[in-house]
């Protein structure tokens, strides 16, 4: 028995060394690893909230329809009824939040309309398409078509 603890000073030294190591590890880990790391998995849990609070730019059509009830009425039953307002008018969250300012610029129909309606074999059959050069060589599309209810009866 006395043989076992003959050199116990070695054990004490080693134990002290390990204790210092463990304490240093715990302190470093506490200091260097973000508090939310491992909250949901092997990543920083706070990142979820940070990504969720990134700025938005599109308000969504529900926000537009709160004020622009006349346009809602125009679009009713038209082939363009289901299209999001900001698809043509651009991102307008700032406009919606500030109650109408800044006013968005009207889109250029010569540029905008052909993106969907210029004739192409790649578009689905039955989707309304025109060869723009034949259909209307010049002038705004909106001169004849109301973009909110484009069908000319």
């Amino acid at each position: 028995m006395s043989d076992l603890f003959k050199n116990k000073v070695h054990l004490v030294r080693m134990a002290g060394l390990f204790l210092v190591g463990i304490v240093a590890f715990v302190i470093l880990r506490w200091w260097m690893v973000p508090k939310s790391f491992g909250e949901y998995g092997h990543y920083r849990g706070a990142a979820l909230g940070e990504i969720a609070s990134l700025p938005m730019h599109y308000a969504g059509r529900a926000a537009c329809e709160e004020c622009h009830t006349d346009i809602v009425a125009q679009r009713k039953g038209s082939p363009h009824e289901q299209i999001g307002c900001e698809t043509c008018h651009g991102p307008l969250l700032a406009h919606a939040e500030a109650g109408g300012e800044p006013k968005p610029a009207l889109p250029d129909s010569r540029q905008l309309c052909p993106r969907c309606h210029s004739a192409s074999p790649y578009r689905p059959k039955g989707f309304p398409q025109v060869v723009v050069a034949d259909h209307a060589p010049e002038g705004q599309c909106t001169a004849c078509h109301n973009p909110h209810a484009p069908k000319i009866s």
């Binding site: 599109y58 999001g84 900001e86 698809t87």
Partner: peptide
């Protein structure tokens, strides 16, 4: 809200 791509897909 829905995503920007879904919000603005016309079809």
């Amino acid at each position: 809200l829905t995503t920007a791509c879904c919000e603005n897909c016309p079809t």
